[in-house]
Design a protein around this nucleic acid. Structure first.
Length: 441
RNA sequence: GGCCCCAUCGUCUAUCGGCUAGGACACGAGCUUUUCAUGCUUGGUAGAGGAGUUCGACUCUCCUUGGGGCUGCCA
Protein backbone atom coordinates (compact mmCIF):
# COMPACT_ATOMS: atom_id res chain seq x y z
CA UNK A 1 0.00 0.00 0.00
CA UNK A 2 1.27 3.46 -0.74
CA UNK A 3 -0.16 6.90 -0.21
CA UNK A 4 0.09 7.78 -3.86
CA UNK A 5 -3.13 9.26 -5.14
CA UNK A 6 -3.85 9.92 -8.79
CA UNK A 7 -6.97 11.07 -10.51
CA UNK A 8 -8.73 10.98 -13.82
CA UNK A 9 -10.56 14.28 -14.26
CA UNK A 10 -12.60 14.37 -17.45
CA UNK A 11 -15.30 16.84 -18.27
CA UNK A 12 -18.34 14.77 -19.10
CA UNK A 13 -19.45 15.70 -22.58
CA UNK A 14 -21.17 12.46 -23.44
CA UNK A 15 -18.24 11.17 -25.43
CA UNK A 16 -15.01 9.86 -24.07
CA UNK A 17 -12.09 10.42 -26.40
CA UNK A 18 -9.55 7.65 -26.80
CA UNK A 19 -6.71 10.01 -25.91
CA UNK A 20 -8.51 10.88 -22.75
CA UNK A 21 -9.26 7.31 -21.82
CA UNK A 22 -5.62 6.44 -22.39
CA UNK A 23 -4.80 9.00 -19.71
CA UNK A 24 -7.29 7.19 -17.48
CA UNK A 25 -5.64 3.87 -18.29
CA UNK A 26 -2.19 5.17 -17.41
CA UNK A 27 -3.47 6.69 -14.18
CA UNK A 28 -5.25 3.51 -13.26
CA UNK A 29 -2.29 1.29 -14.06
CA UNK A 30 0.04 3.53 -12.13
CA UNK A 31 -2.21 3.51 -9.08
CA UNK A 32 -2.66 -0.25 -9.23
CA UNK A 33 1.07 -0.80 -9.80
CA UNK A 34 2.14 1.20 -6.76
CA UNK A 35 -0.83 0.23 -4.65
CA UNK A 36 -2.15 3.77 -4.47
CA UNK A 37 -5.58 5.24 -5.08
CA UNK A 38 -7.19 5.97 -8.41
CA UNK A 39 -9.72 8.77 -8.02
CA UNK A 40 -12.39 9.92 -10.39
CA UNK A 41 -13.23 13.58 -10.58
CA UNK A 42 -15.99 14.81 -12.82
CA UNK A 43 -15.19 18.30 -14.02
CA UNK A 44 -18.78 19.21 -14.62
CA UNK A 45 -18.45 22.98 -14.63
CA UNK A 46 -19.86 23.24 -18.12
CA UNK A 47 -23.48 22.92 -16.98
CA UNK A 48 -24.91 22.72 -20.49
CA UNK A 49 -22.95 19.69 -21.56
CA UNK A 50 -22.57 18.00 -18.21
CA UNK A 51 -25.89 16.23 -18.15
CA UNK A 52 -26.70 13.17 -16.06
CA UNK A 53 -26.73 11.20 -19.31
CA UNK A 54 -23.24 12.39 -20.20
CA UNK A 55 -21.99 11.37 -16.78
CA UNK A 56 -23.65 7.98 -17.14
CA UNK A 57 -21.85 7.49 -20.47
CA UNK A 58 -18.56 8.27 -18.76
CA UNK A 59 -19.14 5.73 -15.99
CA UNK A 60 -20.24 3.22 -18.56
CA UNK A 61 -17.09 3.56 -20.63
CA UNK A 62 -14.90 3.22 -17.58
CA UNK A 63 -16.72 0.16 -16.35
CA UNK A 64 -16.57 -1.37 -19.82
CA UNK A 65 -12.80 -1.04 -19.79
CA UNK A 66 -12.54 -2.28 -16.24
CA UNK A 67 -11.29 1.03 -14.87
CA UNK A 68 -12.62 0.90 -11.35
CA UNK A 69 -12.04 3.89 -9.15
CA UNK A 70 -11.48 4.27 -5.43
CA UNK A 71 -13.49 6.44 -3.09
CA UNK A 72 -16.53 8.52 -3.97
CA UNK A 73 -16.78 10.26 -7.30
CA UNK A 74 -15.76 13.88 -6.81
CA UNK A 75 -17.91 16.45 -8.59
CA UNK A 76 -16.19 19.71 -9.32
CA UNK A 77 -19.35 21.81 -9.14
CA UNK A 78 -19.91 20.64 -5.57
CA UNK A 79 -16.59 22.16 -4.58
CA UNK A 80 -17.31 25.65 -5.96
CA UNK A 81 -17.40 27.16 -2.49
CA UNK A 82 -13.89 25.93 -1.78
CA UNK A 83 -12.69 27.33 -5.09
CA UNK A 84 -13.99 30.77 -4.24
CA UNK A 85 -12.57 30.62 -0.72
CA UNK A 86 -9.19 29.98 -2.24
CA UNK A 87 -9.66 32.95 -4.51
CA UNK A 88 -10.43 35.14 -1.51
CA UNK A 89 -7.22 34.02 0.10
CA UNK A 90 -5.28 34.80 -3.05
CA UNK A 91 -6.92 38.20 -3.20
CA UNK A 92 -6.06 38.84 0.44
CA UNK A 93 -2.45 37.78 0.04
CA UNK A 94 -1.97 39.85 -3.08
CA UNK A 95 -1.65 36.88 -5.41
CA UNK A 96 -4.76 37.88 -7.29
CA UNK A 97 -6.54 41.02 -8.34
CA UNK A 98 -9.76 42.12 -9.97
CA UNK A 99 -9.88 43.92 -13.24
CA UNK A 100 -12.42 44.98 -15.82
CA UNK A 101 -11.90 43.07 -19.03
CA UNK A 102 -13.55 42.61 -22.36
CA UNK A 103 -13.70 39.03 -23.54
CA UNK A 104 -13.32 37.77 -27.07
CA UNK A 105 -17.03 37.72 -27.62
CA UNK A 106 -17.34 41.33 -26.51
CA UNK A 107 -18.66 40.88 -22.97
CA UNK A 108 -17.28 43.39 -20.53
CA UNK A 109 -17.11 42.66 -16.82
CA UNK A 110 -14.93 42.30 -13.77
CA UNK A 111 -12.84 39.13 -13.60
CA UNK A 112 -10.34 37.95 -11.02
CA UNK A 113 -6.84 37.46 -12.34
CA UNK A 114 -4.01 35.40 -10.87
CA UNK A 115 -0.88 37.47 -10.57
CA UNK A 116 2.13 35.63 -11.95
CA UNK A 117 5.53 36.21 -10.37
CA UNK A 118 7.41 38.75 -12.46
CA UNK A 119 10.79 37.14 -12.21
CA UNK A 120 12.46 33.82 -11.65
CA UNK A 121 12.11 30.46 -13.30
CA UNK A 122 9.34 27.98 -12.68
CA UNK A 123 10.52 24.43 -12.99
CA UNK A 124 9.43 20.88 -12.37
CA UNK A 125 10.59 17.40 -13.17
CA UNK A 126 8.00 15.82 -15.35
CA UNK A 127 7.90 12.06 -14.90
CA UNK A 128 7.65 11.47 -18.61
CA UNK A 129 9.06 14.62 -20.18
CA UNK A 130 11.94 15.23 -17.85
CA UNK A 131 13.05 18.56 -16.51
CA UNK A 132 10.82 21.45 -17.53
CA UNK A 133 11.56 25.10 -16.98
CA UNK A 134 10.00 28.36 -17.98
CA UNK A 135 10.68 31.96 -17.12
CA UNK A 136 7.86 33.42 -15.08
CA UNK A 137 7.94 36.55 -17.19
CA UNK A 138 6.95 34.48 -20.21
CA UNK A 139 3.62 33.67 -18.67
CA UNK A 140 0.82 36.21 -18.57
CA UNK A 141 -1.50 36.77 -15.65
CA UNK A 142 -4.60 34.67 -16.23
CA UNK A 143 -8.24 34.72 -15.19
CA UNK A 144 -9.41 32.47 -12.37
CA UNK A 145 -12.94 33.81 -11.79
CA UNK A 146 -15.37 34.82 -14.52
CA UNK A 147 -17.33 38.05 -14.43
CA UNK A 148 -20.37 36.01 -13.43
CA UNK A 149 -18.51 34.89 -10.34
CA UNK A 150 -17.88 31.30 -11.37
CA UNK A 151 -14.43 29.77 -10.86
CA UNK A 152 -12.35 28.94 -13.91
CA UNK A 153 -10.59 25.65 -14.64
CA UNK A 154 -7.17 26.69 -13.31
CA UNK A 155 -8.30 27.50 -9.79
CA UNK A 156 -10.90 24.75 -9.63
CA UNK A 157 -8.44 22.14 -10.83
CA UNK A 158 -5.76 23.11 -8.35
CA UNK A 159 -8.09 23.40 -5.38
CA UNK A 160 -9.66 20.06 -6.18
CA UNK A 161 -6.26 18.44 -6.41
CA UNK A 162 -5.44 19.88 -3.02
CA UNK A 163 -8.75 18.73 -1.53
CA UNK A 164 -8.45 15.27 -3.03
CA UNK A 165 -4.85 15.11 -1.80
CA UNK A 166 -3.64 14.20 -5.26
CA UNK A 167 0.06 13.36 -5.27
CA UNK A 168 0.62 12.69 -8.98
CA UNK A 169 -1.08 14.53 -11.81
CA UNK A 170 -0.98 12.38 -14.93
CA UNK A 171 -2.73 14.08 -17.80
CA UNK A 172 -2.52 15.06 -21.42
CA UNK A 173 0.32 16.91 -23.03
CA UNK A 174 -1.94 19.84 -23.76
CA UNK A 175 -1.68 20.79 -20.10
CA UNK A 176 2.08 21.30 -19.87
CA UNK A 177 1.86 25.05 -20.22
CA UNK A 178 -0.88 25.15 -17.60
CA UNK A 179 1.36 23.28 -15.23
CA UNK A 180 3.64 26.27 -14.80
CA UNK A 181 0.60 28.34 -13.88
CA UNK A 182 -0.80 25.71 -11.58
CA UNK A 183 2.46 25.34 -9.72
CA UNK A 184 2.31 29.05 -8.96
CA UNK A 185 -1.21 28.67 -7.61
CA UNK A 186 -0.24 25.74 -5.39
CA UNK A 187 2.59 27.79 -3.96
CA UNK A 188 0.48 30.92 -3.49
CA UNK A 189 -2.00 28.78 -1.60
CA UNK A 190 0.76 27.34 0.53
CA UNK A 191 0.02 23.83 -0.69
CA UNK A 192 2.55 21.23 -1.70
CA UNK A 193 2.94 20.80 -5.45
CA UNK A 194 2.13 17.34 -6.82
CA UNK A 195 4.37 15.48 -9.20
CA UNK A 196 3.46 15.71 -12.86
CA UNK A 197 3.52 13.36 -15.79
CA UNK A 198 2.38 14.59 -19.17
CA UNK A 199 1.23 12.14 -21.78
CA UNK A 200 1.79 12.75 -25.46
CA UNK A 201 -1.11 12.95 -27.82
CA UNK A 202 -2.53 10.29 -30.05
CA UNK A 203 -2.21 11.58 -33.59
CA UNK A 204 -3.65 10.71 -36.98
CA UNK A 205 -1.74 9.79 -40.12
CA UNK A 206 -0.99 13.44 -40.75
CA UNK A 207 0.49 13.82 -37.30
CA UNK A 208 -2.39 15.97 -36.12
CA UNK A 209 -4.35 15.23 -32.95
CA UNK A 210 -6.61 12.27 -33.60
CA UNK A 211 -10.17 13.48 -33.92
CA UNK A 212 -13.54 12.17 -34.96
CA UNK A 213 -12.71 13.08 -38.55
CA UNK A 214 -10.01 10.41 -38.54
CA UNK A 215 -12.29 7.54 -37.60
CA UNK A 216 -13.72 6.29 -34.37
CA UNK A 217 -12.44 8.72 -31.76
CA UNK A 218 -14.69 7.83 -28.87
CA UNK A 219 -14.70 4.78 -26.66
CA UNK A 220 -18.37 4.11 -27.28
CA UNK A 221 -17.78 3.70 -30.99
CA UNK A 222 -15.31 0.90 -30.45
CA UNK A 223 -17.76 -0.85 -28.25
CA UNK A 224 -20.48 -0.58 -30.88
CA UNK A 225 -18.17 -1.87 -33.56
CA UNK A 226 -17.52 -5.06 -31.69
CA UNK A 227 -14.13 -4.35 -30.21
CA UNK A 228 -13.29 -6.08 -26.99
CA UNK A 229 -12.49 -3.76 -24.09
CA UNK A 230 -9.36 -5.77 -23.33
CA UNK A 231 -8.11 -5.24 -26.87
CA UNK A 232 -8.71 -1.51 -26.85
CA UNK A 233 -7.14 -1.25 -23.41
CA UNK A 234 -4.08 -3.23 -24.47
CA UNK A 235 -3.66 -1.35 -27.72
CA UNK A 236 -3.96 2.05 -26.12
CA UNK A 237 -1.47 1.03 -23.46
CA UNK A 238 1.06 0.05 -26.12
CA UNK A 239 0.69 3.43 -27.76
CA UNK A 240 3.40 5.04 -25.71
CA UNK A 241 4.58 2.32 -23.43
CA UNK A 242 5.99 -1.20 -23.66
CA UNK A 243 7.16 -3.72 -21.12
CA UNK A 244 10.76 -3.57 -22.33
CA UNK A 245 10.67 -6.89 -24.11
CA UNK A 246 8.80 -8.26 -27.10
CA UNK A 247 5.56 -9.03 -25.33
CA UNK A 248 2.59 -7.16 -26.71
CA UNK A 249 -0.52 -9.03 -25.71
CA UNK A 250 -0.56 -8.77 -21.95
CA UNK A 251 -2.94 -9.84 -19.24
CA UNK A 252 -4.26 -7.19 -16.92
CA UNK A 253 -2.12 -8.62 -14.15
CA UNK A 254 1.02 -8.37 -16.26
CA UNK A 255 0.17 -4.81 -17.18
CA UNK A 256 -0.20 -3.84 -13.56
CA UNK A 257 2.97 -5.60 -12.58
CA UNK A 258 5.09 -4.21 -15.41
CA UNK A 259 3.72 -0.71 -15.87
CA UNK A 260 6.09 2.09 -15.07
CA UNK A 261 5.24 5.71 -15.60
CA UNK A 262 8.91 6.52 -16.06
CA UNK A 263 8.95 4.39 -19.20
CA UNK A 264 6.10 6.17 -20.91
CA UNK A 265 7.23 7.76 -24.15
CA UNK A 266 7.53 11.45 -24.75
CA UNK A 267 6.73 11.30 -28.44
CA UNK A 268 3.29 11.47 -29.96
CA UNK A 269 1.98 8.13 -31.19
CA UNK A 270 0.11 7.57 -34.40
CA UNK A 271 -3.08 5.60 -34.09
CA UNK A 272 -3.04 2.48 -36.27
CA UNK A 273 -6.50 0.93 -36.69
CA UNK A 274 -4.96 -2.11 -38.41
CA UNK A 275 -2.97 -3.07 -35.39
CA UNK A 276 -5.94 -2.53 -33.13
CA UNK A 277 -7.94 -4.85 -35.38
CA UNK A 278 -5.22 -7.48 -35.14
CA UNK A 279 -5.14 -7.06 -31.39
CA UNK A 280 -8.90 -7.52 -31.28
CA UNK A 281 -8.58 -10.78 -33.19
CA UNK A 282 -5.97 -11.96 -30.72
CA UNK A 283 -8.34 -11.31 -27.83
CA UNK A 284 -11.26 -12.92 -29.60
CA UNK A 285 -9.22 -16.08 -29.97
CA UNK A 286 -8.63 -15.99 -26.24
CA UNK A 287 -12.31 -15.83 -25.30
CA UNK A 288 -13.18 -18.99 -23.38
CA UNK A 289 -15.18 -21.40 -25.50
CA UNK A 290 -18.36 -21.32 -23.40
CA UNK A 291 -18.38 -17.57 -23.44
CA UNK A 292 -17.89 -17.40 -27.17
CA UNK A 293 -20.75 -19.83 -27.66
CA UNK A 294 -22.98 -17.51 -25.64
CA UNK A 295 -21.79 -14.55 -27.69
CA UNK A 296 -22.62 -16.34 -30.95
CA UNK A 297 -26.06 -17.41 -29.71
CA UNK A 298 -26.85 -13.91 -28.56
CA UNK A 299 -25.76 -12.17 -31.72
CA UNK A 300 -27.39 -14.69 -34.00
CA UNK A 301 -30.64 -14.74 -32.09
CA UNK A 302 -31.19 -11.09 -32.69
CA UNK A 303 -31.24 -11.77 -36.44
CA UNK A 304 -34.40 -13.82 -36.58
CA UNK A 305 -37.65 -14.06 -34.73
CA UNK A 306 -37.23 -17.77 -34.16
CA UNK A 307 -33.90 -19.53 -34.02
CA UNK A 308 -34.17 -23.17 -35.10
CA UNK A 309 -33.70 -25.51 -32.19
CA UNK A 310 -30.21 -26.93 -31.93
CA UNK A 311 -28.39 -28.82 -29.25
CA UNK A 312 -25.38 -27.60 -27.31
CA UNK A 313 -23.07 -29.65 -29.51
CA UNK A 314 -24.30 -27.86 -32.62
CA UNK A 315 -23.72 -24.40 -31.13
CA UNK A 316 -20.41 -25.42 -29.75
CA UNK A 317 -19.27 -26.68 -33.15
CA UNK A 318 -20.46 -23.53 -34.91
CA UNK A 319 -18.72 -21.32 -32.38
CA UNK A 320 -15.48 -23.25 -32.80
CA UNK A 321 -15.59 -22.74 -36.52
CA UNK A 322 -16.36 -19.07 -36.15
CA UNK A 323 -13.98 -18.08 -33.40
CA UNK A 324 -10.70 -18.39 -35.26
CA UNK A 325 -11.90 -16.22 -38.12
CA UNK A 326 -13.70 -13.53 -36.18
CA UNK A 327 -11.90 -10.19 -36.10
CA UNK A 328 -14.84 -8.23 -34.74
CA UNK A 329 -17.77 -9.56 -32.80
CA UNK A 330 -19.96 -7.66 -35.23
CA UNK A 331 -18.79 -9.99 -38.00
CA UNK A 332 -20.57 -12.89 -36.35
CA UNK A 333 -24.12 -12.21 -37.60
CA UNK A 334 -22.95 -11.91 -41.20
CA UNK A 335 -21.00 -15.14 -40.99
CA UNK A 336 -23.68 -17.07 -39.14
CA UNK A 337 -26.89 -15.82 -40.66
CA UNK A 338 -27.16 -18.65 -43.15
CA UNK A 339 -27.22 -21.17 -40.30
CA UNK A 340 -30.38 -19.88 -38.69
CA UNK A 341 -32.51 -18.72 -41.58
CA UNK A 342 -33.04 -19.30 -45.28
CA UNK A 343 -33.44 -15.58 -45.63
CA UNK A 344 -29.85 -14.55 -46.28
CA UNK A 345 -28.45 -12.33 -49.03
CA UNK A 346 -26.56 -13.65 -52.02
CA UNK A 347 -23.36 -11.85 -52.83
CA UNK A 348 -23.78 -10.82 -56.46
CA UNK A 349 -20.10 -11.12 -57.27
CA UNK A 350 -19.86 -14.59 -55.80
CA UNK A 351 -22.98 -15.71 -57.65
CA UNK A 352 -21.59 -14.38 -60.91
CA UNK A 353 -18.25 -16.03 -60.42
CA UNK A 354 -19.32 -19.39 -59.05
CA UNK A 355 -22.89 -20.09 -60.12
CA UNK A 356 -23.54 -18.36 -63.40
CA UNK A 357 -21.10 -20.59 -65.21
CA UNK A 358 -21.95 -23.24 -67.76
CA UNK A 359 -22.63 -26.63 -66.27
CA UNK A 360 -23.09 -25.48 -62.70
CA UNK A 361 -26.78 -26.27 -62.65
CA UNK A 362 -26.19 -29.88 -63.51
CA UNK A 363 -23.28 -30.04 -61.12
CA UNK A 364 -25.38 -28.84 -58.19
CA UNK A 365 -28.25 -31.19 -58.95
CA UNK A 366 -25.82 -34.08 -59.25
CA UNK A 367 -24.27 -33.12 -55.92
CA UNK A 368 -27.67 -32.94 -54.26
CA UNK A 369 -28.38 -36.39 -55.55
CA UNK A 370 -25.11 -37.82 -54.29
CA UNK A 371 -25.39 -36.09 -50.90
CA UNK A 372 -28.89 -37.40 -50.45
CA UNK A 373 -27.46 -40.90 -50.40
CA UNK A 374 -24.90 -40.20 -47.71
CA UNK A 375 -25.85 -42.30 -44.74
CA UNK A 376 -23.84 -40.50 -42.11
CA UNK A 377 -24.36 -36.73 -42.54
CA UNK A 378 -20.99 -35.52 -41.36
CA UNK A 379 -18.21 -33.34 -42.66
CA UNK A 380 -15.81 -36.22 -43.40
CA UNK A 381 -18.47 -38.23 -45.20
CA UNK A 382 -19.48 -35.26 -47.34
CA UNK A 383 -15.90 -34.48 -48.09
CA UNK A 384 -15.37 -38.04 -49.23
CA UNK A 385 -18.13 -37.62 -51.79
CA UNK A 386 -16.53 -34.57 -53.34
CA UNK A 387 -13.09 -36.07 -53.15
CA UNK A 388 -14.22 -38.98 -55.16
CA UNK A 389 -15.67 -36.69 -57.80
CA UNK A 390 -12.51 -34.65 -58.01
CA UNK A 391 -10.30 -37.69 -58.41
CA UNK A 392 -7.44 -35.95 -56.73
CA UNK A 393 -7.44 -32.94 -59.03
CA UNK A 394 -8.52 -30.42 -56.46
CA UNK A 395 -12.02 -29.94 -55.11
CA UNK A 396 -12.29 -26.28 -56.10
CA UNK A 397 -14.72 -26.70 -59.01
CA UNK A 398 -17.22 -28.38 -56.65
CA UNK A 399 -16.51 -26.60 -53.40
CA UNK A 400 -16.96 -23.05 -54.64
CA UNK A 401 -20.39 -23.44 -56.21
CA UNK A 402 -21.64 -25.42 -53.21
CA UNK A 403 -20.49 -22.74 -50.82
CA UNK A 404 -22.23 -19.95 -52.66
CA UNK A 405 -25.35 -22.03 -53.18
CA UNK A 406 -25.83 -22.81 -49.50
CA UNK A 407 -24.50 -19.65 -47.85
CA UNK A 408 -24.70 -16.89 -50.43
CA UNK A 409 -21.08 -15.92 -49.94
CA UNK A 410 -17.68 -16.80 -51.24
CA UNK A 411 -16.12 -17.14 -47.85
CA UNK A 412 -16.94 -18.51 -44.46
CA UNK A 413 -16.17 -21.48 -42.30
CA UNK A 414 -14.89 -24.75 -43.73
CA UNK A 415 -17.36 -25.96 -46.36
CA UNK A 416 -17.98 -29.48 -45.10
CA UNK A 417 -18.29 -28.28 -41.55
CA UNK A 418 -20.78 -25.80 -42.91
CA UNK A 419 -22.83 -28.52 -44.57
CA UNK A 420 -22.75 -30.63 -41.46
CA UNK A 421 -24.12 -27.74 -39.43
CA UNK A 422 -26.76 -26.97 -42.03
CA UNK A 423 -28.02 -30.54 -42.00
CA UNK A 424 -29.22 -32.75 -44.81
CA UNK A 425 -32.60 -31.19 -45.54
CA UNK A 426 -31.42 -27.61 -45.67
CA UNK A 427 -28.34 -28.44 -47.71
CA UNK A 428 -30.25 -30.40 -50.32
CA UNK A 429 -33.01 -27.81 -50.53
CA UNK A 430 -30.57 -24.97 -51.01
CA UNK A 431 -28.54 -26.82 -53.61
CA UNK A 432 -31.66 -27.55 -55.63
CA UNK A 433 -33.05 -24.08 -55.25
CA UNK A 434 -29.80 -22.45 -56.31
CA UNK A 435 -29.57 -24.81 -59.24
CA UNK A 436 -33.01 -23.79 -60.45
CA UNK A 437 -32.91 -20.07 -59.76
CA UNK A 438 -29.30 -18.94 -59.92
CA UNK A 439 -27.09 -21.38 -61.72
CA UNK A 440 -26.39 -21.45 -65.43
CA UNK A 441 -27.11 -24.58 -67.44
C1' G B 1 5.40 36.27 -33.80
C1' G B 2 6.75 34.52 -28.57
C1' C B 3 7.45 30.32 -25.27
C1' C B 4 7.79 24.94 -24.57
C1' C B 5 8.42 19.93 -26.34
C1' C B 6 9.74 16.11 -29.86
C1' A B 7 12.69 13.23 -34.00
C1' U B 8 14.97 4.61 -35.21
C1' C B 9 11.54 0.59 -40.83
C1' G B 10 4.94 3.06 -43.71
C1' U B 11 3.09 2.51 -38.20
C1' C B 12 3.96 1.08 -32.73
C1' U B 13 8.62 0.25 -30.74
C1' A B 14 13.84 -2.39 -28.60
C1' U B 15 18.65 -0.30 -28.08
C1' C B 16 20.36 2.96 -21.65
C1' G B 17 28.67 4.21 -26.29
C1' G B 18 30.41 -1.55 -29.31
C1' C B 19 24.88 -2.82 -34.27
C1' U B 20 25.76 -7.88 -38.96
C1' A B 21 20.22 -2.03 -35.70
C1' G B 22 15.91 -6.70 -32.91
C1' G B 23 10.36 -7.50 -32.44
C1' A B 24 5.09 -6.51 -33.66
C1' C B 25 1.31 -4.53 -37.21
C1' A B 26 0.88 -3.81 -42.39
C1' C B 27 2.89 -5.55 -47.13
C1' G B 28 5.37 -9.57 -50.56
C1' A B 29 6.60 -14.85 -51.27
C1' G B 30 6.04 -19.94 -49.77
C1' C B 31 4.08 -24.28 -47.03
C1' U B 32 -0.62 -26.39 -45.11
C1' U B 33 -5.31 -26.15 -47.98
C1' U B 34 -12.07 -26.64 -50.31
C1' U B 35 -13.02 -20.67 -49.58
C1' C B 36 -11.90 -17.08 -45.83
C1' A B 37 -8.99 -17.41 -41.79
C1' U B 38 -5.58 -19.68 -38.35
C1' G B 39 -0.70 -21.82 -38.02
C1' C B 40 4.38 -22.24 -39.71
C1' U B 41 8.61 -20.59 -42.88
C1' U B 42 10.49 -16.43 -45.29
C1' G B 43 11.61 -11.32 -47.86
C1' G B 44 12.10 -6.07 -48.26
C1' U B 45 12.06 -1.36 -45.78
C1' A B 46 14.79 2.71 -40.51
C1' G B 47 18.60 5.95 -36.98
C1' A B 48 16.20 13.90 -40.79
C1' G B 49 20.89 16.86 -42.13
C1' G B 50 25.49 19.06 -40.37
C1' A B 51 29.35 19.91 -36.78
C1' G B 52 31.63 18.35 -32.13
C1' U B 53 33.14 14.82 -27.83
C1' U B 54 35.22 9.73 -28.16
C1' C B 55 39.40 4.33 -29.88
C1' G B 56 34.26 3.96 -31.22
C1' A B 57 27.94 7.33 -31.64
C1' C B 58 21.35 5.62 -33.25
C1' U B 59 22.80 6.40 -28.31
C1' C B 60 26.22 12.41 -25.29
C1' U B 61 26.60 18.17 -26.81
C1' C B 62 25.48 22.13 -30.25
C1' C B 63 23.30 24.03 -34.78
C1' U B 64 19.90 23.46 -38.89
C1' U B 65 15.55 21.32 -40.73
C1' G B 66 10.95 19.14 -39.91
C1' G B 67 6.70 18.10 -36.67
C1' G B 68 3.61 19.11 -32.45
C1' G B 69 1.71 21.90 -28.18
C1' C B 70 0.48 26.47 -25.69
C1' U B 71 -0.24 31.63 -26.23
C1' G B 72 -9.27 32.46 -23.88
C1' C B 73 -14.02 35.25 -18.84
C1' C B 74 -12.51 26.34 -22.79
C1' A B 75 -11.01 22.46 -20.17
Amino acid sequence: MSDIRVRFAPSPTGKVHIGNIRAAIYNWLYARHVGGKFLLRVEDTDLERSTPEAIAVLFDCMKWLGLDWDEEVFYQTKNAKRHLEAVDRLLASGHAYKVEKTSRDGKTGVVTMFKMPKEGVIEFDDIVKGHMAKKAEDIQDFAIVRSDGSPIFHIANVVDDIDQRVTHVIRGDDHVENTFKHICIFRALGASVPKYGHLSMIVNQQGKPYSKRDGAAFVGEYREQGYLPEALFNYLLLLGWNPGDDREVLTREEMIRLFELEKVHVTAAMFDPKKLAWMNGEYIKKIPHEEFVREVKERVSSLVAQVPAHGDAWWSYLADQLQVRTKFLNDIPGMARCFVTDDFPFDEKAVEKRLRKPGVKGLLLDLAERFSKVADWSAPALEAVVKELSQGNGMGPWVHPIRVAVSGRGEGIGLFEMLQLLGRDTTLARLRKAAETLAAD
